[in-house]
């Protein structure tokens, strides 16, 4: 059986510079191979700028690889027919890092969570907003919060709204792109336990992109290290990853703050 989501030899370059200036190519992804099975919870770590987020965007279908392919249930999404593309679109959802920018400030929480349901289930706006209420409760908010606007939520609450939006179309995979990095420690811990709870309850597969080894160690059953545009190692725990002695992992370890100050 083929994996739920797989990236095969994915390359991605960015062109820098304009019409008249000298162009410069940034080769961000240099042949990434990554497979995500049904129900997997994979952490993807690497220092900032190593291409983690680009990989996330390619896996989400937001950017096309220059070379290589992204396959959903074994089928290349670039070549799939509209029906199976729609199935991919519904099944692979995302939660972004920048909470404030992740929601349209002109919409209510209900409308935000309703958007994917209107698109995928053909619901009317009113129906979809009604169905957003139990989803908001599921992520620890109140049903009445559906009528509030983003400015009326705290960062952690807003991230819960984003999680509810990602869960709304009943996906199989959710990509968390630094999803807790902009939150403070306490809120981070609460959101992480929510994510863990949802995973265990719904059997969702995760791709958890982070630069914070502790977060990944606590949440994920597998860890992949990204360096120089490729997957450098994939292990079943952060400990084993550290044991590989890859230079990039050393940098990540060094960037961790001490668990207790002044020890």
């Amino acid at each position: 059986m083929s994996a739920l989501l797989s990236l095969k030899n994915v390359h991605r370059r960015y062109r820098r510079g304009g019409f008249f200036t000298r162009t410069e190519m940034l080769h961000v992804l240099r042949g990434v191979d990554l497979e995500l099975e049904e129900g997997a919870s994979l952490g993807l770590v690497g220092r900032s700028g190593c291409g983690k987020s680009t990989l996330g965007r390619v896996a989400l279908g937001l950017e096309r690889p220059d070379k290589g392919s992204v396959c959903f249930r074994g089928e290349d999404i670039a070549a799939s027919d509209p029906a199976s593309y729609a199935e991919f679109r519904r099944s692979v959802q995302v939660v972004f890092q920048n909470v404030q920018n992740s929601v349209n400030p002109r919409m209510t929480a209900g409308e935000i969570v309703a958007e994917p349901m209107r698109n995928f289930f053909g619901l009317s706006k009113a129906e979809a907003v009604e169905r957003s209420r139990p989803l908001l409760e599921q992520v620890g908010l109140k049903a009445s919060d559906a009528d509030k606007r983003p400015t009326q939520f705290s960062g952690g609450e807003l991230q819960r709204v984003c999680i509810a939006r990602a869960l709304a179309p009943k996906p199989r995979v959710v990509v968390f792109d630094e999803a807790v990095s902009s939150l403070d420690m306490l809120v981070q811990a609460r959101v992480l336990s929510l994510i863990e709870h949802i995973r265990d309850e719904q059997g969702l597969a995760f791709l958890f992109i982070s630069h914070d080894l502790r977060v990944v160690a606590g949440l994920c059953r597998e860890v992949a290290l990204m360096a120089d545009g490729v997957i450098a190692a994939r292990k079943s725990s952060v400990k084993e990853l550290v044991a590989t002695g890859h230079p990039a992992i050393g940098e990540l370890l060094a960037s961790l703050p001490p668990a207790a100050p002044g020890r």
Binding site: R90, V92, V94, N98, N101, P116, R165
Partner: peptide, 26 residues
């Protein structure tokens, strides 16, 4: 490139609707 426009694409909103619903109002 705002995350909410990317999120709308992930949420299956068509390009035309993204312009009408998320870009023109801003």
């Amino acid at each position: 490139n705002r995350e909410y426009v990317l999120a709308a694409r992930v949420a299956g909103t068509s390009r035309g609707r993204i312009v009408a619903r998320h870009i023109l109002p801003a």
